[in-house]
Design a protein around this nucleic acid. Sequence first.
DNA 1: GCCCAGGTGGGTA
DNA 2: TACCCACATGGG
Length: 223
Amino acid sequence: MTEQLRNKVTKIHTRLLEVYGEPQWRVNTEPLGELINTVLSQNTNDRNRDKAYAQLRQRFPTWEEVRDAPAEDVLEAIRPAGLAPSKGPRIQSILQRITAERGTLGLEFLSTMPLEDARKWLLSLNGVGPKTAAIVLLFSLGRPAFPVDTHIHRVSKRLGLIPKRTSREKAHVLLEELVPSAHYYTFHINVIEHGRAICAARNPKCDRCTLNDLCDYYQEKQK
DNA sequence: GCCCAGGTGGGTA
DNA sequence: TACCCACATGGG
């Protein structure tokens, strides 16, 4: 069964590459910046996240300044991202925690830890769940973690890669076993790209979903 | 006005 | 474990 699913993943991966191509590796930042950026991105859109992150960096050029700033000032800077009253204190508490534990503000130490230890450490931070931890590990540290966001979760279920009832947390575990780690990044980016197409396809008027042979939703619609 | 966007944590059964 | 909900902003 698992072997069948792996074959299916390979087929989907290949098809996604045909349709969406090889994504460019996101130019990024040191892991701490990636972490803060990802916290800001939670349950918001890219534009609002970018605006909040830019305002935060402009107002407080160093992480030390963010850490030591009055809570209200941080909150004001990141307001465009939404959920600021939650995200502001979480960001500051993350910075304080790193300072207390490491003496210096950076996450480079995670790159030499065993993967699961690094993941556990990230998950122990308030405001960091499985998705945020995986983003930092994969995008910024180049480690084999597979981030499951709302699109990946929905599309994976729809394509039958994971059972319909699978929680997002469980989906991380299942998909990390199913997808070859060398393809994590490309698969992640392209499934999201496809997920956006499917989102649009939920609108009956939309004809942008081009993966007819892979999309259960689309197939059901054809019947 | 209404809906949604690349989640997380807390509460309940 | 598995769901449910609050949390806030900006753009279509």
